[in-house]
Amino acid sequence: MALLTGTGLIVKIVLLILIGFSVVSWAIIMFKLFQVHRANSESVRFMDFFWKSKRFDAIASQVDRFASSPLTVLFNEGYGELKKVVEGGGVSEGSALSTDLGGVENVSRALRRATNSEITRLEKYLTFLATTGSTSPFIGLFGTVWGIMTAFEGIGRTGSASLAVVAPGIAEALIATAIGLVAAIPAVMAYNHFQHKIRVLIKEMDNFSTEFLNIVQRNIAGK
């Protein structure tokens, strides 16, 4: 406690900034852990349900059970676009789609758009973790350098350079670097972890889009 109270104004401001970074970083880490975990688990459950179901309308009626999965968003977008193509394209129910498969292209674009929006949603706040991981040590270092400068200035004024006089100032200054590292290390670790998890989810979304389009195309070709 004495280390914190004994520091100068600039070092105190640096410490407050770093503590703020740490608080927000940990909030993002907890939120992302929850979000990614639910997205993964519900995606697995949704894929099971998807392959067991025979009809898109049956899946669409149950899709709210898997609201946290990004795949449900893709399905909703793709299914919605498919319905629009079927209803708005002048094609009557039960008849074949246009022969150039323009409807499939529309569904593909809708799925791509939904994938992009889901990637954006999943990667939201991760930039803050990257920023914390890269800048916190430097902010802490700035506080340390400033604290050491102030300590040496004080030593110069008093004219005493014994260890007992020098050491407290240095210790007070070094706490800024310590807190900077405390904020940065979890942020970097979490950033790398979430990047990996989100990359896996993106692959799953790509695979789901491909499967969805294949089903649509098979159905059109079969008609």
């Binding site: 503590i19 608080v23 909030a27 939120f31 968003v73 706040y125």
Partner: peptide, 21 residues
């Protein structure tokens, strides 16, 4: 609606993080 639910979760996380700190 998905975005608004996500932001609510973020607010709760902020409060929990502050308490932990």
């Amino acid at each position: 609606s998905r975005q608004s639910r996500a932001d609510t979760g973020m607010g709760v996380s902020c409060i929990v993080s502050t308490v932990i700190h």
